[in-house]
């Protein structure tokens, strides 16, 4: 399966870069030394051990803006959030998003340099592309690379928070998330014990928006199931094919839907930021095949919000939505 292959390679290049990075960091901090007499510390990043400021003041954040914003940080520059991420942002996050200088879809090094950052954080897989020149980043300011994927997001998110000095916000979100997950687990203990769930999704990329061609069945620990697992939901199929460890799920055609979901007690379909069904999934709900599924007329098909970025705040709002949806199940009352 090609979807979401493992992203953590490059240990060897990282080791090579380590030496370069150390030398360059020294150069970088030399240039800055006059302006601030701040302390630095060693930070373990994907690109090696980097000397970064203990309390960075001017951070340029390259990668998913929404992830940075979720930490409550205020980057001086970043590729601004746009399009599909905007409706998910809080008013405050939108303000910070607007206030940051846009470093562009293609990283504009001169813009980054003119912002005089004391720390650059890069967290996206595309840094292997020609546009990403680590040497150049390091010559502007200490630069740390931190990548995330479905499997390692919790630990990598923590490292990200650590690097940008927002561990307090991170801990608060993490605690809130864990409490909420435990609450759900507790409150619906009986129901969760006796019920199996199947999580369906559709991506506009994998399927046409208006078309009901294929549906995505999410395996446990995938985009919209990782938080559900923490809340104690039994997600089917419970033993997905293990040959591809990183598999996030599989495509189903509409024809196969009725057979595939037959074993599940409850079906979960995705909701968007405004609480209504995700536009990509709406045609499925309208289809005759969906309506003919036994779970649907019984009220055992529930919509749960699915925000896929790897942050605790996203997972918290997903959990809240799940809690509401579980309450509507016939068994809950």
């Amino acid at each position: 399966m090609i979807t979401a292959p493992p992203r953590r390679r490059g240990a060897a290049p990282a080791a090579v870069l380590l030496g370069v990075a150390l030398v360059l960091t020294a150069c970088g901090s030399d240039a800055d030394a006059g302006t601030r007499a701040d302390e630095t510390r060693s930070f373990e990043a994907d690109n090696g051990t980097i000397e970064i400021p203990v309390d960075p003041q001017r951070i340029v954040a390259i990668g998913s803006a929404a992830t940075y914003l979720s930490l409550g940080m205020e980057p001086v520059g970043m590729p601004r959030a746009s399009g599909s991420e905007l409706p998910w942002l809080s008013a405050e996050e939108k303000q910070i998003n607007e206030a940051a200088v846009d470093t562009g879809e293609e990283v504009d090094y001169e813009t980054v340099a003119s912002l005089e950052p004391d720390l650059i954080v890069v967290h996206e897989p595309s840094h292997i592309l020609p546009g990403y020149n680590e040497e150049r980043f390091q010559s502007i300011a200490p630069t740390v690379y931190i990548e995330q994927d479905t499997a390692n997001w919790k630990s990598q998110y923590e490292r990200l928070a650590d690097a940008v000095g927002e561990l307090d916000n991170f801990e608060a979100d993490k605690t809130e998330y864990e409490t909420l997950a435990a609450d759900v687990k507790d409150e619906y203990a009986d129901l969760l014990d006796s019920t199996t769930f199947m999580v369906l999704n559709r991506w506009s990329g994998g399927t046409n928006p208006g078309e009901t061609g294929t549906i995505f069945l999410e395996y446990p620990d995938s985009f919209c199931t990782n938080y559900a697992g923490d809340a104690g939901l039994k997600i089917l199929p419970d033993s997905p094919p293990t040959s591809e460890e990183e598999d996030t799920g599989k495509d189903l055609s509409m024809e196969q839907l009725s057979d595939t979901v037959a074993d599940a007690d409850v079906l979960i379909y995705p909701l968007g930021p405004d609480g209504s069904v995700k536009p990509e999934f709406a045609p499925v709900l309208d289809s005759n095949i969906w309506k003919s599924l036994p779970q649907v007329p019984d009220g055992r098909a529930i919509g749960v919000q699915c925000r896929t970025i790897y942050t605790y705040s996203a997972k918290i709002s997903n959990l809240e939505s799940l809690e509401e949806a579980l309450a509507t199940l016939p068994e809950a009352g």
Partner: peptide, 12 residues
């Protein structure tokens, strides 16, 4: 390229 959402919808 500047609108990932549009890109996503269009690749299909």
């Amino acid at each position: 390229l500047t609108d990932p959402e549009a890109f996503d919808a269009m690749r299909n």
